[in-house]
Amino acid sequence: MIAPHVPPDPDGSSSPADAVEAALAVYLGPLTARSAVRTIAHGVLGRRPDQITRAEAPRFVEAFRPMLRTLLGDAPADHLIRELTEAVR
């Protein structure tokens, strides 16, 4: 069984960056997912991943679209971005 995209977070305690990292790790592996989250957080928002707020999360998630489009194609990338945006809101 392949792990789900976004792991369950019933109490909403995990940060947006953690949720995105866990979802990306399914595809990129844990090390590259962590590296991607750090790079995007710094490059797009100029912050550390743990400093990203829920208000900034949609913009943060959107920044992963080109990466996912390249590796998985347009339609799956659109679906994943929509799913991640819902999960971190």
């Binding site: 392949i2 995209h5 399914v26 998985l72 194609g73 799956p76 679906h79 929509r82 799913e83």
Partner: peptide, 14 residues
């Protein structure tokens, strides 16, 4: 399979 996985899980949400 990787592409199908990305499409399938999202389809469940939609």
């Amino acid at each position: 399979a990787a592409v199908a996985h990305a499409k399938a899980s999202a389809a469940v949400l939609a």
